[in-house]
Amino acid sequence: MAYGTEVDVFEEHRSVLMGVAYRMLGEFADAEDVVQDAWLRWSSADRDNVRDARGYLVRIVTHLSLDRLRQTQARREAYVGPWLPEPLATDFLSETLPDSSERALLAESVTLAMLVVMESLSPLERAVFVLREAFGFPYAEIGAMLDRSDEAVRQLAGRARRHVTQRKPRYDVDTAAQRDITERFLEAAAGGDMEGLMALLAPDVDVISDTGGKAKAPRRVVEGAENAARVFIGGADGNEKAAQPQLLFREINGQPGLLVLSDGELDTVMVPMFRDGRIARIYIIRNPEKLGGVRV
């Protein structure tokens, strides 16, 4: 097989490989490392006997991701403050997946809320869930990838699906309404309008900030509308670098998100989640090491 051909085949499947690795790991940088390792194995493999390049490569990425998950468990347990998945700009889904149903399925499987829930699955459950629910691989093919029987894979899939269904929060998906509420929220926060903020927040709203100890933000989950509003009143979200930060709307993990730029550099990613026309949860990622998947 010519060198150019092996590159072409790998690049043809790169987006799927990144999709599997990112959903498995919840970390963009780790997913890139896994895909690079997969390329090294692919480039040195005996490809003449490979009949299904996509399945072969996904199997490599899945095993590498499982190994990486087990290695990072201790690191996450020692993490300073709440741990959140690395945010990922997903505007490309609209361009690469013109089919709206397929785009919706993949976008739902990559939301921050879904990735947070998947953190509570075992590594094998997570692998089966990603391969089956997000990418539609048949049970038999997943079993071959994981060296498990068809029945074992079905049991893992059922257990994972029940777990996710029980723990996955219910949020609204009206993009236009979400942007309108977010703009009103920002206007109220900038103007110090406590009453205006409270009207936009669900009574049980919570704010989860991920800084890794490398930026200023609450290190514990902030619960309740009044407490959450106070986080944002008067610039209390910890963005002290710029008096007038630049705000940009972007699609983050399949949902409307907000980028905060300080001196032209990405400082914060904020993703509000909505329920019944109010903000029910706000994810804030300020750890600079976690912003590589969002390019301004």
Rank of each mutant, 00 (worst) to 15 (best):
A89I: 04
L88P: 04
D67I: 08
R68A: 09
T72R: 14
R75N: 13
H63V: 02
R68D: 08
G81W: 03
F92G: 07
T90M: 06
R70E: 15
L69K: 02
R70A: 11
E77V: 07
T90V: 04
R76E: 08
P82H: 11
L84A: 00
D91L: 07
L88N: 01
L93P: 09
T72H: 04
L84S: 00
L64E: 02
G81S: 03
A78V: 02
P85A: 03
L69C: 06
L88C: 04
H63Y: 13
R75A: 13
Q71I: 05
R76M: 14
H63N: 14
P85S: 03
L69W: 00
T72V: 15
V80R: 13
Q71D: 11
G81R: 01
T72I: 14
A89K: 02
A74P: 00
Q73H: 11
E86K: 01
A89H: 01
W83H: 06
Q73I: 12
S65A: 14
T62N: 07
A89W: 06
R70M: 15
H63E: 14
L84I: 01
T90G: 08
L66P: 06
A74H: 09
A89F: 00
V80L: 00
Q71A: 15
R75K: 12
E77Q: 13
W83V: 08
H63M: 12
R75E: 12
A89L: 06
T72W: 07
L84Q: 00
A78G: 08
E77K: 14
L84H: 02
P87G: 03
L93Q: 13
Q71K: 13
G81V: 13
E86A: 11
G81I: 12
L66K: 11
T62F: 00
P85F: 00
E86N: 11
A74N: 10
R75C: 10
H63P: 09
T90W: 05
L66H: 09
L69H: 04
R76Q: 12
